[in-house]
Design a protein around this nucleic acid. Sequence first.
DNA 1: TCATTAAATTGTT
DNA 2: AACAATTTAATGA
Length: 222
Amino acid sequence: MKSEQLRAVIWANDLSEPELTRASAGVVERRFQKGSYICHRGDRLDQWTGVVTGLVKMSSVARNGKAITFAGIGAGGWFGEGTVIKNEARKYDLVALRDTRLLLMNAATFRWLSENSLGFNRFLVRQLNERLAQFIAATEYERLLKPATRVARHLAWLCNPVLNPHVHDRIEITQEELSLLAAVSRPVVSKSLQTLKQAGLIEVEHGVIVIRNLAGLADFGN
DNA sequence: TCATTAAATTGTT
DNA sequence: AACAATTTAATGA
């Protein structure tokens, strides 16, 4: 991939010119159709992955057969550093919820950057810290039974400026996609969105949700 | 550019 | 899960 294309990526700002050149040599773009698996749990997809456009769901299947969603990754988000760093199999499924363009960085390039680029490591620490905060919040939210609260949290996470920097206050997501993320039925999403709208936190358009009050969303139900 | 049609999305039963 | 209503996207004049 050309280094000019990589400049649009959030961590490119943290890299020096030679580092950026090196990085771009190890990155390729791939497209995934709506509904297709990017990888299954147990695969050895040892590539660091970024979302250019689209929406990816990280999920797993529990022993009782129920699907558990960990997180949705939107435009500008990067994931998979854990499997690359530890060189182990994926611990979750990755599904494209809509047509998605991904950037894949091979493991050798990732390791070179983490060993040579201070800026790259700064980015990684910031990202890991933010994700840790999100997962801690997720353990708490499992006990929250109110559907509107679950939907609100997922919307707030999708808007997280550190994890999904290119998602701003306008999320292109259908209620069906949101129901897949929040693990509730689509009618419940429909009702929940109306509740959140009445609370003045969001605006609902067709295939689009506009965030009016991000802090309020993250805090909804508390 | 505008009208017609097909497809997607939403809200409700 | 299935329905009707609404909006967008696609097609062709």
